[in-house]
């Protein structure tokens, strides 16, 4: 497969466009950098289909999807934002239609069925596309699923990669653009293949919990809990789920601004596969005690040893 030119086909399902809004804030690189080919190694990417960005319209637009299903856009990466409803539950109506071609409705699920047979790789952006997210929330009125569940953990694209998930609601702007960029560099043999965890998240971004990366985590190890919003201290007693959520949004949001716990907001697990159901909800109920107890036991011993180690003068 020649990869000099790669088409990107971005579908929006049961989504809010928040992931699209997020990626347009990215800085390192910006989306414009990527699309203009300003970054070495990332040239030749063409946004062939994005319902909200594309220049083409008319039959040309719907035809892109139909043609891609027939292999005319190979190689292409399938990108999904939003969850996939179960259309059988909607009969005789519809839950998610993304277009119409020759008097035939293009339902989201049918389109994914077709595209997933041809795509080089598939990337799910956001918690909805990854694991179902809010539409999948109990009682899941529309039978919504994420791409990982819809295609299955064993699914592989033409490049041999499984579904790549970038969870978060939305994911940090740079997370999205960097995973997409990294996947392209890897496909072209420039960067190593991204290592994925059991939830198909790239470990270089999602390998640590929001708690481990938390800028105010020192208050936890220092034994200072906040008991009111606005009070400086560990946010665990206010319901922080950072200890069970693999996410880097606790650090900052973008360009050095924001960041969940850094601002003072308890993490409520919007990047976790369980979101928005237990154990992430109720969002401001305390996280399960188990992980805290485990960390405290390990930490108590280690803190003693670390303290003792600091009694010796460092030899340089």
């Amino acid at each position: 497969m020649t990869l000099e030119e790669i088409n990107l086909i971005w579908l929006e399902g049961q989504d809010c466009a928040g992931c699209t809004i997020s990626i347009k804030q990215a800085s390192n690189p910006t989306l414009i950098d990527v699309l203009t080919g300003a970054i070495p190694g990332l040239g030749g990417l063409k946004l062939a289909y994005h319902p909200t960005l594309m220049f083409e319209w008319g039959e040309d637009a719907a035809k892109i999807l139909v043609d891609a299903i027939e292999g005319k856009y190979d190689p292409f990466v399938l990108i999904l934002e939003g969850a996939i409803p179960e259309e059988a539950k909607a009969a005789p109506g519809v839950y998610c239609v993304i277009g119409e071609y020759e008097e035939k409705l293009l339902k989201l699920s049918d389109t994914i069925d077709g595209l997933s047979k041809k795509c080089a790789a598939a990337v799910a952006i956001g918690t909805c596309a990854s694991y179902g997210g809010i539409p999948h929330g109990n009682p899941n009125p529309t039978g919504a699923k994420g791409l990982l569940d819809y295609l299955g953990k064993g699914w592989k694209g033409a490049l041999g990669l499984p579904v790549i998930c970038i969870p978060g609601c939305p994911p940090r702007p740079d997370n999205i653009v960097q995973v997409l960029g990294h996947a392209v560099l890897a496909a072209r043999g420039i960067a190593p293949l991204p290592e994925l965890d059991e939830w198909h998240r790239p470990t270089y971004l999602y390998g640590s919990t929001a708690h481990e990366l938390c800028p105010i985590c020192g208050f936890y190890s220092g034994g200072v809990d906040a008991h009111a919003f606005g009070e400086t201290g560990c946010l665990g007693a206010l319901g922080c789920k950072g200890i069970i959520t693999n996410c880097n949004a606790s650090t900052t949001w973008m360009d050095g601004y924001g960041g969940c716990t850094r601002t003072g907001v308890p993490c409520f697990g919007c990047a976790d596969p369980s979101f928005p159901d237990t154990p992430t909800s109720p969002f401001f109920a305390k996280a399960p005690a188990g992980p805290f107890i485990k960390e405290t036991m390990k930490g108590t011993w280690s803190h003693m040893m670390m303290g003792l180690a600091r009694l010796h003068r460092r030899k340089i």
């Binding site: 924001g258 969940c260 601002t263």
Partner: peptide, 12 residues
């Protein structure tokens, strides 16, 4: 993001 922690979807 300064007072909302993030955007879109502010958490504060």
């Amino acid at each position: 993001s300064i007072f909302g922690a993030k955007h879109p979807h502010v958490h504060s």
